[in-house]
């Protein structure tokens, strides 16, 4: 995994030599033309869901995959975005005495609210090394769900909020497509800048990165805030699309897991891994797990264990390596070569 990231990141940005971004642009254009073929509403909805999953995965990758700060509570920002839109569209009269906002006005605030929260939280937890951050985020998600449930006058509590329905599947399709293009494009751009290299340096050796003069706290906080901003926008969009939010559907645990697993499955810290992982994961869910819905979370948990153990470079790593790991290596109880012996 490490060797792969080092080689692909070291090449300088040259728009004409990089085929991957052009392939991506081509795919986006194709996707943009898709509604012209007059597809059914159900198909548009499926495409929208895939775009949302790709966007979430790509955003999680920005903090979890690039800096190695595993965020177990990234759904918090999704929730903040969703509730910002929900509250501003339905309750702003009672709470801030402002006129009711339209979706587009409220949407701007959903990203900003998530980003502000990320900055506050990041100031506390990102100065430390990874594991503290991970558990703090897990606790944040648990606490947030309870807080939303308790603040009934503002959030509607367990009863939830009904948003004004403006069901327009084509508009939703393009909006989610735009969000996905933005997130993945940003990821690609970051991966090819010094900022991205610094983030990877933090993941590989934080103390070393600090000694080389990288302001690690600033880099981590920037990545975290950007990621939270985009995730907040997705949450706001999702609330509008779903027209109903309550703590259970917003802080839906499989969604939290799926964005993490999509990244690990595709390849941590790569640009194209998370989209690939998200598509594969969505396919698995539709064709396989929907028949075993009662065991959906169990399937996701086991899949995470399996991928971490046997496919640490993700699908992208598998493709770059060109071969699968042989079975006898999989069954060995210990790592074949430990780190010390290597050095």
């Amino acid at each position: 995994m490490r060797a792969a990231t080092a080689t692909s990141a070291s090449a300088p940005v040259s728009l004409f030599r990089r085929w991957d971004i052009w392939a991506w642009v081509g795919l986006i254009l194709l996707a943009a033309l898709y509604p012209l073929s007059d597809p059914t509403t159900a198909r548009l909805l499926v495409a929208t869901q895939i775009f949302v999953l790709i966007t979430l995965a790509s955003n999680w990758n920005l903090i979890g995959g690039m800096t190695g700060y595993v965020d177990f509570g990234h759904l918090t920002f999704f929730g903040i975005g969703a509730y910002t839109v929900g509250i501003l569209m339905t309750r702003s009269k009672e709470i801030v005495f402002a006129p009711q906002l339209s979706f587009w006005q409220a949407w701007v605030f959903s990203g900003l609210a998530a980003m502000v929260f990320a900055l506050l939280l990041g100031a506390a937890t990102l100065r430390l090394r990874g594991p503290y951050f991970s558990i703090a985020m897990l606790a944040t998600l648990l606490a947030m769900r309870e807080i939303v449930r308790l603040l009934t006058p503002i959030t509607g509590g367990g009863g939830g909020l009904d948003l004004p329905p403006e069901l327009n599947r084509i508009e939703e399709y393009y909006l989610s497509l735009g969000l996905m293009t933005l997130s993945v494009g940003l990821m690609w751009w970051i991966r090819n800048t010094e900022f991205g290299l610094s983030l990877l340096a933090i993941r590989e050796d934080e103390v070393g990165a600090e000694m080389r003069g990288i302001n690690t706290t600033l880099h981590k906080t920037t990545a975290f805030a950007l990621s939270a901003f985009l995730t907040g926008l997705v949450g706001g969009f999702w609330a509008w699309q779903n027209t109903y939010i309550d703590p259970d559907v917003v802080f839906f645990e499989p969604r939290n897991l799926e964005m993490i697993i999509a990244v690990v499955l595709g390849g941590l810290g790569t640009v194209w891994g998370p989209p690939l992982g998200a598509v594969v994961l969505y396919g698995l869910r539709e064709f396989f797990w929907n028949r075993f819905l009662f065991a959906h979370l169990l399937g996701l948990g086991l899949m995470l264990i399996f991928v971490v153990l046997f496919l640490p470079g993700g699908l992208i790593g598998l493709m770059q390596k060109g071969r699968a790991i042989p079975l006898h290596e999989l069954l060995r109880p210990r790592p074949a070569v430990s780190q010390e012996e290597e050095a």
Partner: peptide
């Protein structure tokens, strides 16, 4: 034991998977 010498990222993800399972 397979991940005990790998970076924290890996063991955190693994234990998260175990807890969910």
């Amino acid at each position: 034991n397979r991940v005990v010498e790998r970076p924290h990222l890996i063991s955190l993800l693994l234990n998260f998977g175990i807890s969910i399972s």
